[in-house]
Design a protein around this nucleic acid. Structure first.
Length: 205
DNA sequence: GCTAGGATGCTCT
DNA sequence: GAGCATCCTAGCC
């Protein structure tokens, strides 16, 4: 039975601890798939199961914001693991990452897609669509559905309104592919997603 | 169904 | 000033 058909839990589980994030980025990325991302706001809580992520490394990854070294924008990538790195792109969209690796070593994981589970009416209002499948399929749609903006940049995911929990679900299998939506180093196998899941943004390459 | 192109403004060189 | 970890819509098949 898929998670989406289970009863809604009466309380959220505990947020993942900092040690979870303080590891090498690809390993954290693999383990993030299947976890639950939630954002509590005054308007209500919204979130769902992470079904697609991409790992971005440090100085050795040409596609990473950290490739050229520390800048004001990418400074969260060099900071405390378990915090959020939110950036603004294409003049209108936000994307949310989780910071990985021990402090001082840049690394982040872009959360690309969620399977909506909680606060669906709220997400439908924010996204101005009724289609569940289109609520959080893609990094910019996801941030819009969850009400994430630059205010959430550097938010602590281990204790706060924006957090990730483990519902104990074991992911049966995972697809590894090249990253999408980028021009550099798109061949590196750093994208992880659930196979045959309708909430994944795009098929792999 | 698919594709091309426009929107929009921050960030870095 | 160029590029960008995107999305939406119109137009076409």
């Amino acid at each position: 039975m898929s998670l989406s058909r289970r009863n809604k839990p009466t309380s959220w589980g505990a947020a993942l601890r900092r040690d979870f994030y303080k590891r090498d980025t690809p390993s954290v990325a693999r383990d993030l798939v299947g976890k639950i991302l939630l954002h509590r706001t005054r308007a209500g809580a919204a979130g769902g199961r992470i079904v697609e992520v991409e790992a971005y490394l440090g100085r050795m990854d040409p596609a990473s914001h950290a490739y050229s070294g520390l800048t004001p924008r990418n400074s969260p990538m060099f900071g405390t693991p378990g915090k959020a790195y939110v950036y603004f792109t294409y003049g209108m969209h936000y994307c949310v990452n989780v910071v990985t690796e021990p402090e001082g070593i840049p690394g982040a994981i872009l959360i690309r897609a969620l399977e909506p589970l909680f606060g669906i009416p709220l997400m439908q209002r924010r996204r101005r669509t009724q289609r569940i499948q289109d609520l959080a399929r893609g990094p910019a749609r996801l941030t819009q559905a969850l009400g994430i903006s630059l205010k959430q940049n550097e938010a602590d995911l281990t204790s706060g309104a924006l957090f990730i929990t483990d519902n104990g679900e074991q992911v049966p299998s995972l697809v590894v592919s090249g990253r999408i939506g980028i021009r550099k180093a798109c061949e590196l196998p750093l994208r992880f997603y659930l196979p045959d899941n309708p909430f994944v943004s795009r098929p792999g390459r």
